[in-house]
Design a protein around this nucleic acid. Structure first.
Lengths: 222, 222
DNA sequence: TAGATTGTTAATCGATTAACAATC
DNA sequence: TAGATTGTTAATCGATTAACAATC
């Protein structure tokens, strides 16, 4: 009775759940797999199949209760309790992440922020003090931090990853475009913006065959 | 003789190519699929299989010439010529993207930047003037922009996407956590940070069964 | 020639889709 | 009961891995 859950399913569950939160805010009571599918850009069967891997949440002939389904998915994603997150690196990207409201809404609580810029250390973001890197292990441990986010330059990413692991995190979300070496039990996800752009370049050319239009000098320019 | 290329392959090609650029900078001449595999975190067969979808780039018994292979992959990804990219939304995330050097290195040229903040309009980033949104269609057209990057708040993302399409882009990279509705011929990729974090929460719990440790008050706190 | 490593074909594994039975 | 919609089983499709032949 042990089903393997495809990662693609988990990704979609996260998307469904955000859509359901939205419906709930709008006081919509029931929804069908067809409506979910349409708004989320997948097929209705896909939606039902995904749900079915975790249980039976709907009523045949009727659909799904929005509140109930939403709650079930949050439970599945373990977002029914909060998570302690450490953010390392407060450049532009780190700042964007630190101020992103979506995390807190979904129980992902940034409990510590680290940077090595003396001008930033000691200041606060959302009541969290920015600390120097040499406090990382200690603080991450104390906070029982489960997830570390790495948004430092590539050359420091591995070093930071090691510190996070030493501090006891279970999972790392890495924004640096490097391949990190981690103990197998640590969960890792990489978000790589360049890779995503390059997939687009590949796909775009496919459409137009081999033709590629060169671009002009920008219209508005220095 | 028309092979379908898995998207996963394209992603890996992008990663291989960055690794090869690195090797080339270090004046390494030859490399084997084993060494590539190890450093990139996949299996050697995977590497060879990926390459084989596009041609034969290696010498049996010897390996691959770094320069040659690198160049071939850049050609495959259409990164042997430059791309005109428009960046819309200059919040923290947009700023991070605008200052990311990896793009330019790989022929992804940000030719225009748009924001609606009057304090930012008229200033320059890397010689590109920040323009108001109402110039978007015109400028994107003029620059023959192929790719648009959306880093505006979710509620404006669809509207901006429409303008980009009107301006003639072929592909959109969307950072707003919403499902965009686009003409089928427009290539779309979504980068969704929350989804990635939530996959980590799911995976972490799986490891520890149902046990989840609550977190303390932060050690360093306001 | 022997050793190494590529490239390919076939087998396996995994995810999506189609068909349909169950049931509200 | 008829219509709607879920949930599941089987079929298909796609991607990875294993085995091995080719060849430097």
């Amino acid at each position: 009775m042990k089903v393997k859950i495809p990662e693609a399913t988990i990704m979609r569950m996260s998307v469904y759940s955000r859509f359901l939160a939205d419906l709930d805010r709008k006081d919509i009571i029931m929804i069908s797999s067809f409506d979910i599918a349409e708004r989320v850009g997948v097929s209705p069967v896909q939606v039902r199949k995904d749900f079915s891997l975790f249980g039976e949440f709907g009523k045949r002939g009727v659909g799904y209760n929005v509140k109930e389904l939403h709650w079930q998915i949050l439970k599945i994603l373990s977002l029914d309790a909060s998570w302690s997150v450490a953010l390392v690196g407060l450049g532009n990207l780190g700042s964007a992440l630190s101020s992103y409201k979506g995390f807190h809404e979904r129980g992902l609580i940034i409990t510590s922020i680290f940077d090595n810029n003396p001008g930033k250390i000691g200041t606060f973001i959302n009541n969290v003090e920015i600390l120097p890197m040499d406090k990382l292990v200690e603080v991450v441990k104390y906070n029982q931090t489960q997830i570390g986010i790495i948004s430092v330059p590539s050359e420091y990413a591995q070093e930071i990853a090691n510190l996070l692991v030493e501090g006891g995190v279970q999972a790392i979300l890495n924004f640096a475009p490097v391949v990190l070496n981690l103990p197998r039990e640590i969960k890792l996800r990489n978000v790589d913006v360049t890779v995503n752009l390059e997939i687009l370049t590949f796909n775009s050319v496919k459409i137009f065959g081999e033709i590629k239009r060169p671009h002009n000098e920008p219209l508005f320019f220095a």
